[in-house]
Amino acid sequence: MEEFMFLKPRKMKHPQNGMTLEYLEKQSAIAALLVSEDGKKGYFVEQFRPGLKKNSIEVIAGLIDPGEIDMDALYREVSEEGGYNKEDYDIIYTEKKPLAISPGYTEEKLSLYILKLKNGATQKSLHLDEGEELEGKWFDFNEVLEKSEDFKTFYLVKVYELLNFQNK
């Protein structure tokens, strides 16, 4: 089998019935909804996704590198894909623990955050990884929910809406 860079197919025996199970060993990741100063829009990235075979509109996200903690990956990814440094925003929501993406087929867990830009924060240039092609755009939340098919994006937007509803 051809070697993959990020996905490693594995097999294991089910601990109770001995059935052979297949899964992917994959490093965990972060995802962050970046909200505008006024709280009315979010910053989303559009990029090609092979699972959809088309472009996808998503929150900022990226893998946690070996030896890196999730907070360092958060700061790095928001800077790379969003152009904002940690001094430019407040973390207004952190999921209590990393959540399994699809526990039936991968080990990957996702650390989830919602960030709100501080007044006067200005976007710097993006620092994309080699081969990474994406474009960042500000969208109204309803608009992105209509356009996106990405679960982590839906989840974080809905959590943000719920937080706003509870604070009214």
Rank of each mutant, 00 (worst) to 15 (best):
L7Y: 13
E81M: 06
N17H: 10
N17D: 14
K147Y: 06
I101H: 02
E25C: 03
D38E: 14
G67A: 10
G42E: 00
E22W: 07
D70V: 02
R10K: 15
E95H: 13
E108W: 04
D129S: 12
E135V: 15
L7R: 12
E77T: 12
V144H: 10
E58H: 05
E81I: 03
A32I: 01
G62A: 06
G120F: 06
P66L: 05
K152A: 02
T20S: 10
K54I: 01
E81S: 06
G131C: 04
F141K: 12
L63T: 15
P98N: 02
L52I: 03
L156Y: 01
Y43I: 07
D90P: 04
N85Y: 07
L99P: 03
Y23G: 04
I60P: 00
P98K: 01
F165D: 07
D70R: 10
K96T: 05
G67P: 13
L112E: 12
L21Y: 08
L117C: 08
G82D: 03
Y89P: 00
D88I: 00
L112K: 12
D65R: 13
T153H: 06
F154A: 00
Y155N: 07
N167R: 15
W138A: 11
K26G: 06
G62I: 04
N85M: 08
E95M: 07
F154N: 00
Y160E: 00
L34P: 04
L128Q: 08
D72I: 04
N119H: 11
Q27S: 05
K168D: 05
E58V: 05
K109W: 08
A73K: 08
F154H: 02
R49V: 10
G18H: 07
L162W: 06
I69T: 11
N17R: 04
G39S: 03
G83N: 05
L74G: 06
E107A: 13
Y113T: 00
T94Q: 14
G51S: 12
S102Q: 13
Y84A: 05
G104I: 09
G136S: 11
E25S: 12
K147S: 10
I57V: 14
Q47M: 15
L74F: 07
A29F: 11
G18W: 09
Y84T: 03
Y105S: 13
F165L: 11
M71R: 15
S148N: 00
P9V: 11
L163A: 08
S28I: 03
L112G: 06
K40V: 07
F6A: 07
V157N: 01
